[in-house]
């Protein structure tokens, strides 16, 4: 019952924060005005207020919810899969690959769709290469080999990204690449949300369905196998779903670090280590975390701070606090 209560509180917190995210900003509005505009729906009477709510703030907040949820469940799934609480979604090189793809897209084209498509494709390519390399090495010490292969592909795409930055036009393309890599929710549109929401939703459901197997796999490969779990197939499925989720977030908003590392820890503090609870709850905690950080990034100064900077600046002290606390009591 307590755990259901925690889920209820998380839902309520997300709803309140999302409401604040829409209401608070340089253009002030009363709660009554906000409710009125929301009730009008997306095709209500044109007005400045309606445009600000429906075209600027709402996609921004919905994007934060989706991206926070996607990064958090990816991190939780990877920490379970690699049986390591220090793992984050970029362990197999997905963010490095997606970052390189986006930079390549920015150099080759001015179309945002090209940038996003290349970002998504190279995110998958980077992880695919890591998995392929690990598979070629063999299945002895499978997880360690996989992590090392991920380090190799991440290093490769980081180097390629540096090369693109070095050769990019320093007055036009380079600033665009650097700004994009900092992570921002500012360019998210309804059209992007319309296709990314179902992708994130389906991949998240897929991961939640694997939660029980993740629990069993946390006992080690051999024990999981003797308990009837097809370890390799399950691992590939989880890597695929997680890669899709992480790539979609990079496509939508660039590199947003730390969410996938910290949120699963916060969630385990609330609900314990059972992935059947951690995975769905991390969706909510991740969404809350990113909506809150987005609220700060838009209102902290007169200029919107790229959210990737703030997730790191806020995430680091939280992680240090967790280390101090969990260092004494043990990881959950």
């Amino acid at each position: 019952m307590i755990k259901f209560g925690i889920f209820g509180i998380l839902f309520a917190s997300l709803a309140v924060l999302a409401g604040l995210g829409i209401a608070i900003g340089p253009f002030a509005m009363s709660p009554g005005q906000l409710v009125g505009v929301l009730m009008q729906g997306p095709f209500g009477a044109p007005s400045l207020l309606h445009t600000i709510v429906w075209e600027v703030r709402l996609p921004h907040v919905v994007g934060a919810v989706l991206i926070g949820a996607a990064l958090a469940i990816s991190g939780a799934a990877y920490q379970g899969l690699f049986i390591n609480p220090l793992v984050s979604p970029e362990i197999l090189g997905v963010l490095a690959g997606a970052g390189f793809g986006a930079a390549l897209g920015l150099v080759l084209s001015d179309h945002f769709v090209t940038v996003q498509l290349l970002s998504f494709i190279f995110g998958l390519v980077a992880v695919g290469l890591a998995v392929l390399l690990a598979w070629r090495v063999g299945d002895e010490d499978g997880l360690i080999v996989l992590v090392l292969a991920g380090m190799i592909t991440a290093a490769l795409f980081t180097a390629l990204l540096s090369f693109i930055k070095y050769t990019a036009d320093p007055y036009d393309k380079l600033p665009a690449i650097i700004y994009w890599l900092m992570g921002s929710l500012g360019q998210i549109t309804w059209a992007q949300l319309a296709w990314s929401a179902p992708v994130i939703g389906l991949a998240s459901i897929g991961l939640v369905q694997q939660a029980e197997r993740l629990n069993i796999m946390s006992q080690g490969d051999e024990e999981a196998q003797s308990l009837g779990v097809p370890v390799v197939q399950t691992r590939i499925l989880i890597i695929l779903l997680t890669t899709v989720l992480a790539s979609v977030t990079v496509m939508l908003a660039g590199m947003i670090a730390w969410v996938g590392l910290i949120v699963p820890h916060l969630t385990r503090l609330l609900l314990g280590a059972d992935n059947r609870l951690v995975l769905p709850a991390s969706l909510l905690v991740g969404a809350i975390y990113l909506v809150a950080v987005d609220l700060l990034s838009r209102n902290f100064t007169s200029v919107e701070i790229p959210i990737g900077i703030l997730t790191a600046l806020i995430g680091l002290p939280i992680f240090a606090g967790l280390l101090l606390r969990l260092g004494a009591s043990g990881w959950r």
């Binding site: 379970g80 049986i83 390591n84 609480p85 029980e212 629990n215 069993i216 946390s218 006992q219 080690g220 024990e223 003797s226 308990l227 009837g228 385990r268 314990g272 280590a273 059972d274 043990g330 990881w331 959950r332």
Partner: peptide, 20 residues
């Protein structure tokens, strides 16, 4: 047996009950 995450004992034993 390597222990990393603090799963509840009852749930770990139930993994055997559900095996296969």
């Amino acid at each position: 047996h390597k222990v990393t995450f603090g799963l509840r004992v009852r749930d770990i034993v139930a993994m055997g009950s559900k095996a296969g």
